[in-house]
Design a protein around this nucleic acid. Sequence first.
RNA 1: GGCCCGGUAGUUCAGUUGGUUAGAACGCUAGCCUGUCACGCUAGAGGUCACGAGUUCGAGUCUCGUCCGGGUCGCCA
Length: 457
Amino acid sequence: MEFVNTEKKADTTRIETLIERFALGEVKDGDPVRLKGTLHRIKEMSGFAFVNVRGARTVFQCIWEEGTSTPHINQFRVEECVIIDGTVVFEERSRLGFDIRIGHMERISGRAEVPPVEIGNDRKMEKLNLNTLLDNRVISLRNPKIRAILKIADGVMYGFRQFLREEGFTEFVPPKIVSEGAEGGADMFEVDYFGQKAYLNQSPQMYKQIMVGVFQRVFTVGPVFRAEKYSTNRHINEFQGMDLEMGFIDSFEDLMELEARMFQYLFRLLNEQYAPELELFLGRDARLPDLTVFPKLRFTEAKQLFADAHPGGQGQSALAEPDFAPEEEKWLGEYFLKELGAPIVFITHYPSVKRPFYAMDDPDDPKYTLSYDMLLNGLEVTTGGQRIHDYEMQLEKMRKRGMDADQFEDYLTMHKYGMPPHGGMGLGLERIVQNLLGLDNIKQATAFPRDRDRLRP
RNA sequence: GGCCCGGUAGUUCAGUUGGUUAGAACGCUAGCCUGUCACGCUAGAGGUCACGAGUUCGAGUCUCGUCCGGGUCGCCA
């Protein structure tokens, strides 16, 4: 019998490791190196060639030389994976401060065909039509700028989880196949469940409230399904919901306070650990702003602010609507960015008619709820609020809405057996990423978007 | 789903009042070039003009239908 090795091998073939060691002065001119990567770009010159190789997070440059490097460079095509045995040569003309002179290069992938899109050229990739980009998603994701988007998404999920654990939250996993909708069944995907009708979950709402009765503070990250036939730049039919729910709150203000701190934490984490990716979008040495102030205003105040700034028909019709038009949200985002340098705005006390049955009405004015939306650069990325925790109150609100309480037996069971005052929020991962990086379409912010006409790849 | 706009080379696009063999750039192929990374230069290959029907002597171009896409609105994260 043999045993599995548990000793971690030194990973010396990663370019990122070599760059770190170069910065620390641990690499000497002329040092031999072995590196693994993917051929990103090959530019043949006279007697030599620039060979750009893509690592996990960086593209580095090697020099192939006629006569000294083997085999001939014309034996290779871009996107082929290679192992390079070469030499570090300090070189001021190189972006990293050093080149790697190729001694021998071995292909460890199969032969690659010519890609239909120019993976090695960021500007060309950016000019692609969204449809071409997505049709060729399998390889377009390899482009450094495109993969940076997904790296940022990784950072947002990482920050969300890390912050909440530090705040005493427990992560749990709700089911994705359910028998009833949390908020009505109109926009749910139906699935056949052993001959019985079931649905893909449109929200973890009920489950996270149930878990508040268990752990007090909980969160979950996972796919949420909406069967609406959307056609906008900010909707997809499967998105990653980042949901949390917190028990024993003193007021719904606690939720906004938590979220404000969460975004401070998140921005700091991205600036510290995801700088190379941010720079591809925000510019050289650019960082996300320090979040110091978080404007908070009531729904009616926000409406009035918009109406005052837009005298005439547009302002009047805005006042008449019980919700914000995308244009109004955009204007509010720009207004507070300009006036206070605040990219995040909290809008509170949404009208009760626009909020779900579990939303806690404001005892001072029951036409409005103890709820809020958070706008990031003028786009709604979070909806949150306090929930009804009293059984009788919840029954009463359902009755008023003409809902059949029998269909919500599981939901009401938790109230029946005692729930603390609680509330929570749901954040859309892709929307956050879309906004942080200024992407035109939310489909760019997820690896494999699902929309009305797209089920592949 | 409503309204508006679009579909031409692998990609991004141009294509005049309907008129000979449908163009450019990038990519690709073959060369040239010792510091390129949107390099540059020369030559070449590459097209069912989304699909179907119609009008016409003649359709990439005009009409209708179908399919697909983009923007916007509804709704939301």
